[in-house]
Simulated scan of single mutants.
Amino acid sequence: MSTMNNLSPWKGVLSGTGAAILANVLVYPLDIVKTRLQIQVQKRDRNRDGKNDCGSELENGPQYNNAMDAVFKIIREDGFPGLYSGLGSSLLGTASMNFAYFYWSATARILYGAMLKAHGCADANSIVKELGLGAAGGAMAQLCTTPISVISTRQQMGTKFTGKESIWKSTKAILESDDGWAGLWTGLKVNLILVINPMITYGVYQWLRNILVNVRKELGSFDAFVLGALSKIIATIVTHPLIVAKTMLQSKSVTCRGGKPFKGFTEVLIFILQNEGFLRLYKGLLPQITKGFLVQGLMMLFKERYVFSRSGFRSIF
């Protein structure tokens, strides 16, 4: 049995959160790229001049053809630091989200185990069980961390054309908007629906992990990486249209809407279908999957290979 199964909830929380922060730092440029691609509007029908009526969300900024094009243009316009815009708020969001998720998921697992024991029932390796336990952690985490997600998205949009904003300036701009404090929770509804993403990710991972542990009795580093990456890819493909809708909803309104903000994620989805076409519901999918593959793989690898002892984290490589 893996050492991680013997960890208390707090030890699992700390190891999972630390692993998530480290993994996200390593692949953060992919986060910038996927955000820029997802908020960019490319109208499928061109006007008589051959120009798009709907321009990029980054008004007067560059248009990105693909992920590599976005990387080169960001470096050319903002230098290498441009690939790390909003890193501070993103890491804060990553830490708070994973802390809340792992804590509430672990708590739900303990309560579930206690309930089974009290009723004399045997536990079973069921993907339905894993998805249900993950839902509790995901919902509670989203309620607490949506404001950080909104601020991080606004910061990642900043270029030399639109101007870069600090965490404080981004927060102030949101509070001074028509939405006020409620603006910090923009996209909460879609975020709650997106709880199915970590549900699928951790549910599939835990399910496959239990199967592998029962067969091999021990989970290796490569096994943890592959299982974590595979589970995240599956979750990303299933939920990507909602991820795009959330990103556009939390960003400033698109240019061709005359500054009119989206009212909800369903309006975003309809807008994309009407103006860009079905395939654009999956814009930014490659960097999103690549980021998810690496982050989830590295996070599960780090989480499986570290334990928390009385003296601190101790490597068990």
Score class of each variant (00 low, 15 high):
205 Y>V: 01
189 K>Y: 03
253 S>Q: 02
239 T>N: 06
200 I>T: 12
234 I>M: 09
267 E>W: 04
263 K>P: 15
258 G>Y: 05
241 P>E: 00
277 G>F: 03
216 R>Y: 13
263 K>R: 10
258 G>W: 06
193 I>P: 15
229 A>H: 04
211 I>M: 10
198 P>E: 00
213 V>Y: 04
276 E>F: 02
216 R>Q: 12
212 L>M: 11
226 V>C: 09
194 L>T: 14
210 N>T: 14
204 V>L: 02
242 L>P: 15
271 F>G: 15
234 I>W: 06
249 L>C: 11
263 K>Y: 08
267 E>S: 11
212 L>G: 10
258 G>E: 04
229 A>E: 03
238 V>I: 09
240 H>V: 07
191 N>I: 13
239 T>M: 05
270 I>M: 06
277 G>Y: 01
270 I>E: 10
249 L>K: 02
264 G>D: 12
238 V>F: 08
189 K>V: 14
265 F>C: 05
224 A>S: 11
278 F>M: 11
227 L>Q: 12
266 T>Y: 04
240 H>F: 03
248 M>D: 01
263 K>W: 08
230 L>E: 03
208 L>H: 05
262 F>E: 02
275 N>S: 14
278 F>P: 14
277 G>Q: 06
196 I>A: 14
212 L>Y: 02
210 N>F: 07
227 L>E: 08
213 V>Q: 06
214 N>F: 09
217 K>C: 09
245 A>H: 02
211 I>Q: 12
254 V>F: 03
210 N>E: 08
217 K>D: 05
232 K>M: 02
190 V>C: 02
274 Q>I: 08
265 F>P: 15
270 I>Y: 02
259 G>L: 03
248 M>S: 06
192 L>N: 10
237 I>H: 09
244 V>I: 03
232 K>H: 01
259 G>S: 05
196 I>T: 12
269 L>A: 04
271 F>V: 07
249 L>T: 07
257 R>V: 14
263 K>I: 12
232 K>L: 00
251 S>F: 01
241 P>A: 00
265 F>D: 05
272 I>E: 09
213 V>N: 08
203 G>W: 03
196 I>S: 13
267 E>R: 05
190 V>E: 04
201 T>E: 04
242 L>V: 07
248 M>W: 00
194 L>S: 14
222 F>Y: 12
267 E>V: 07
190 V>F: 01
274 Q>P: 15
280 R>N: 10
214 N>S: 12
249 L>M: 08
236 T>K: 06
232 K>P: 11
273 L>M: 09
220 G>F: 09
280 R>I: 11
206 Q>I: 03
245 A>M: 05
231 S>E: 00
259 G>Y: 01
234 I>A: 11
229 A>T: 13
267 E>D: 12
238 V>T: 11
235 A>I: 05
255 T>F: 10
192 L>H: 05
256 C>Y: 05
213 V>I: 14
275 N>E: 12
238 V>K: 11
